[in-house]
Amino acid sequence: MSLDTQLPDDGVHVASAISDEVVIELASVNKWFGEFHVLKDINLSVNKGERIVICGPSGSGKSTMIRCINRLEEHQAGDIIVNGTEMGTNIKNIDAIRRNVGMVFQQFNLFPHLTVLENCTLAPIWVKNMPKAEAEKIAMQYLERVKIPEQAAKYPGQLSGGQQQRVAIARSLCMSPTIMLFDEPTSALDPEMISEVLDVMVGLAESGMTMLVVTHEMGFAKRVADRVIFMDQGEIVEQNTPDEFFTNPKSDRTKLFLSQILAH
């Protein structure tokens, strides 16, 4: 799957916009599913504006790691600090973090009973208490940005997979998040629709958004990422700039992984 032909690899890397400010800090994070040790002592710090691509075989804990960042999964040991707020059991902290962290899912998870526009305005209206008219105005701006304003009145079930995923991105952006998490955003899409979603994500990267992307789209990683992280067995095996990562991987495990996904 996922060849690096999905994006025109014109060799131009999207200009990076990293600041010194650390926005996500994972310190010795450990997590178990029952007896299964899924995250082992993860340390990671992400700067504002940084774009990180996380790859690795299935079951390596990459999705679980980013899901810990907005507490869709609870970690059992270690600290997670997002935008200076410590993630704990405190509901207020969790809600504050979630308001600032957008997430895009593999299965889109649009609300099927609401129109595209209602999907986008729901959280601004009910979480931020924004007046409806203003929320709709903002939603239309973002729908234009993902190039589907004409679908605003339709229901998600009437859209193609690629369109649904773009709506999902617009929906997250409507909350004006400072960080965006992408959990395999193109894995459930037909090959013909992958590039339209990746284009939107590249556009988002160009705007300077802090992004953590779990994906196997290596073309996207080469073009956009400031750092590529390779995970296996619940550990971060290797992290490096995309150039170094793809041309000069250090660990044997990484070499094997790259040879397998780039082989055909």
Partner: peptide, 18 residues
């Protein structure tokens, strides 16, 4: 109701009752 619906709602900061 799909688990993803709960997760999408939570990830946007909606409270339990909302």
């Amino acid at each position: 109701v799909n688990k993803g619906q709960y997760e999408a709602a939570q990830s946007m900061g909606l409270s339990f009752w909302k």
